[in-house]
């Protein structure tokens, strides 16, 4: 004679996973994989850009980009590389502004985000760094 064993085990799976903290209403969503990837890429580039900001070779434009301000502050052999650096930084910045707008469900905010960043990059910049004022002239902070 066989004995039938019947057993139902209820296991509590996924019980202790924490629910995500509720998002504050006043915050914009910036924790997306795309934004994180762009942030990482810009962070890695920053060590190189910082010395160019210091030397005045590169400055902040009023449209949220960086631009070559004084190529002569850079040795000849590195001017090409600086141009490439500026091009990649601006590409990342454009993608960042677009991604933030998209992550918050309002792609049409891209230009507003860009404008906000333009102003924040400049006001957070260190003393001695250069930026473009409203009329497009370079100003030393």
């Amino acid at each position: 004679m066989r004995t039938a064993i019947f057993f139902t085990a209820a296991l509590a799976a996924l019980a202790s996973l924490l629910p995500a903290p509720a998002l504050g209403q006043a915050n914009l969503e910036i924790n997306t994989p795309a934004i994180a990837a762009l942030q990482r890429s810009m962070q890695q580039r920053h060590s190189q850009l910082a010395s160019l900001y210091n030397s005045g070779a590169v400055g902040f434009t009023r449209d949220g980009n960086v631009a070559l301000r004084d190529a002569k502050a850079v040795p000849l052999a590195q001017r090409q590389q600086v141009n490439a650096l500026i091009a990649s930084e601006n590409q990342d910045r454009a993608a960042l502004y677009r991604e933030i707008a998209r992550a918050n469900g309002h792609p049409e905010w891209e230009n507003d985000i860009r404008a906000t960043f333009a102003q924040r990059w400049i006001s957070r910049a260190q003393r001695g760094w250069y930026y473009q004022n409203a009329s497009g002239a370079w100003v030393r902070k």
């Binding site: 064993i5 019947f6 057993f7």
Partner: peptide, 18 residues
């Protein structure tokens, strides 16, 4: 036999943690 069920209790889970 034997039967085993798995239940979940938490309905909101942090995706990255998961």
């Amino acid at each position: 036999i034997p039967a085993l069920s798995v239940l979940g209790y938490n309905r909101a889970v942090d995706w990255n943690e998961l």
